[in-house]
Nucleic acid binder design. Structure first.
Lengths: 209, 209
DNA sequence: GGTTATTTGAACCGTTCGGTCCAATATGTA
DNA sequence: TACATATTGGACCGAACGGTTCAAATAACC
């Protein structure tokens, strides 16, 4: 009956790296270079691991890419949840757009959105990529829906158009990420985000008396 | 003074293929597979030419890609001009969205937009690709501006928001092409286009008495 | 029909691709 | 200290990569 203290979970040599950390580094690589352009050599360099360690731990390039995409979505989903909070309706949405503006002008943000990049690079060609594309779409939609539904409750906008505004907001964000990655000057992208904000403002109903 | 009839423009063996036709085929290849994923072997197969013929006529893969992109933009620009015509303002814009819907549900259209795909795949990495990204953005903007400015003249919309609506319309089209390529079901994409149309309808001002 | 210019197919280049294997090494347990 | 177990770096694989060269074939012009 003596239960051994659960110290012998792993017998041999323990792992010298943090899986999540390495996966993050690989995600960054794919984010920057895309799937095809990122070579195994790049992956080795980015991870700091040996090629065979990489392979043993995570599998093939294909599998690693899927893991990296998954990690991006999880991380990103959490970020969205954190960012789009509050009960101010459209004002929260506008705050999020400001976050998008900030990102789009940063070195990191000019790589666009990994989910969008993956969508357009691998599209229908890679089933798992299409799956992530759908997941990203859903996650982003849900996050955007919250402030917009709240805006309807607050009487800021026409409740009939909640779905339309959700779709529109998502499209605007996607398009901004495309522009940012596509080498469009940050001033121009920022101007586009101005338009996004002005559009949202145009959704406001006149305050009922 | 006897001017020779200008028959001896080319002395040797004449070209056996049509440059534009071959370039179209190559454009289709890059449209479908993207830049990195398209191999020289693919290019040979798509063009029907020999590898060295390809090289002699158009140059390296890199140069051919640029030529193909240029051809896409020219072709596409002409198409946009043809499609977005008329003087009905928002109704012409809505017609264009219907065209986008039709494309997005076709086999061919589910490859997205080559300019957008190129933007996100090569982004800042390839200067010429960034150049095309800007050209595409400008061309699309100008095409969309026409019906929207007309709508302002017709009193359909708030003239103050013309720029905003141009940016928005372009963003919606870009986002639709991303969705179409990303493996999103055609019904879902079509639903997104419904939202686009409803949004545009919400821009209409009440008819002044 | 001879000349000339061009295309053509195939062989070939060195490099990099993604992927695999294994002996050496390092570490926790007994 | 000896054992068991996992990781590690590097050698190695065949295939495909983008790109180049060239002799042979071909067709318009004189």
């Amino acid at each position: 009956m003596s239960t051994e203290t659960a110290t012998n979970r792993h017998r041999g040599r323990p792992r010298e790296f943090d899986e999540a950390e390495v996966l993050d580094a690989l995600m960054e690589l794919f984010w920057t270079k895309g799937y095809e352009a990122a070579s195994l050599a790049d992956m080795v360099e980015a991870s700091g691991l040996n090629k065979s360690s990489l392979y043993n731990t995570f599998g093939s390039k294909d599998e690693i890419y899927d893991l990296a995409l998954g990690r991006y979505l999880d991380t990103r989903g959490g970020m969205l949840d954190q960012i789009i909070t509050g009960d101010r309706g459209l004002d929260d949405l506008l705050d999020f757009f400001e976050f998008v503006r900030l990102e789009a002008s940063s070195e990191s943000g000019r790589r666009g959105c990994l989910a969008v990049n993956s969508s357009t690079e691998l599209g229908n060609a890679k089933p798992t990529a299409a799956e992530f594309s759908k997941r990203y779409r859903a996650t982003m939609g849900e996050a955007l829906r919250r402030p917009i539904e709240r805006a309807a409750v607050l009487g800021q906008i026409d409740p009939e158009l909640v779905d339309v505004y959700v779709d529109t907001s998502r499209a605007l964000v996607v398009s901004a990420s495309v522009a940012a990655r596509g080498g469009i000057e940050t001033e121009e992208v920022s101007r586009q985000i101005d338009s996004m904000c002005r559009l949202v403002d145009s959704w406001r109903l006149p305050a009922s008396v």
